[in-house]
Design a binder for these strands. Structure first.
Lengths: 203, 203
DNA sequence: AAATAGTTTAACCAGATGGCAAAATTAATA
DNA sequence: TATTAATTTTGCCATCTGGTTAAACTATTT
């Protein structure tokens, strides 16, 4: 494999990511991806055979980033405060690097839910472990009695929603000022974990 | 206007809603909507001129349902507990009637953010009023000191996210069992308001 | 019943879209 | 350098898509 091959491949992937993120699968056009990549449309097919295959490559990568990567911390023996803080801070940080990912994943999973099943196995996500970890903290009296699934979804909701709803929130609450919204998202790292801890810690 | 006109129009709208909700604007096909409505494709154009116009009708209606309708309660003089409970319960109830709305709105707003500006005026949504109401409760010492925008987004996130992420959550946490997930969403009416109140009430 | 207006259908079109085959160009190998 | 392999471009096609037009059909009015 020559340098050029890897190079072209990467250029295509970057262009495809940009277009797929912005327009979604159905809205994306192979021609537009080719233009974005500065090359001929047929080259896309030469490297990736079809629109589907190219999309798959983008989706897989995005999905992996979307799945929280810090299960270990969630089931370790550190304090519940540290767990929450680590999870929220890490997750918001990761998403901020590619903030279009949440809405992209949510949209495409809605369009084709079957894909997830296979995807989950590949990524090796084990929500049961997190659930069990939470239950453990409850049993040990570290936090109040709460349905672990509700708590888990609450945490995810508070982290993810501001990104999924970004265009709406930015216009509604920040006069469409991107800078303000960016700062707001940074603030949330502390704000969200504080909000959660307040709610679940035993007094 | 004959009975038939209104009737056909409504049949088209229902069919269009179904298809647009499932596939989004780009994925939806006028032919598919016509099939769903059991009529000729040209009829859609006879009644709605274009795909855009038809979509607009669907989107406007969906957007109005997506915007919380209980601002009054949020700025009234009832206790903060009652406010939160009323808001959450009402909002989750409304969305459960048409649970596809959140992902649909989030997706389409991402595809075309400009639309919101005009839309907000039509619907008459005034987030500033809610913000001010929250600030008032803070000033009166009813709840802890918190950035009202964070609190507002937290509330929305906790209500909306489980619907936006439904396909993912249902598979990840409920073995793809729709009944279980439905019950789970019902539980959230109490769970979410409790979670919020726990977090913000002064001790 | 004749005329008019409203509704529905069938047939079609121009442009776009994903994809492909073969030629042209460049790189690698002998 | 000659030959083979890899990469890129050109040109094209079958299909689909939103949209239109004119004809057919139905209900209403006179």
């Amino acid at each position: 494999m020559s340098l050029k091959e890897t190079d072209t491949e990467q250029i295509i992937l970057n262009a495809a990511k940009e277009v797929f993120f912005k327009k979604g699968y159905d809205g994306a056009r192979m021609q537009e991806i080719a233009d974005e990549a500065g090359m001929n449309k047929a080259l896309l097919h030469y490297y990736f055979r079809s629109k589907d295959k190219l999309f798959e490559a983008i989706f897989n990568d995005a999905f992996q980033r979307f799945v929280p990567k810090i299960v270990e911390k969630m089931i370790s023996n550190i304090s519940i405060e540290e767990k929450i803080e680590a999870f929220v801070d890490n997750y918001i940080t990761v998403i901020m690097e590619v903030p279009q990912i949440p809405i992209f994943i949510l949209t495409e999973i809605n369009r084709n839910p079957e894909r997830i099943v296979g995807m989950m196995k590949k990524v090796g996500m084990q929500p049961d472990l997190i659930i069990a970890g939470i239950q453990n903290d409850i049993d040990e009296g570290k936090i109040i009695d709460i349905n672990p699934r509700h708590l888990l979804i609450n945490i995810l909701a508070l982290c993810v929603f501001p990104f999924a709803g970004k265009p709406l929130m930015q216009i509604m609450l920040f006069n469409n000022n991107p800078g303000s919204y960016h700062d707001f998202l940074l603030e949330r790292k502390k704000e969200v974990s504080q909000f959660i801890i307040n709610s679940i810690k035993n007094k």
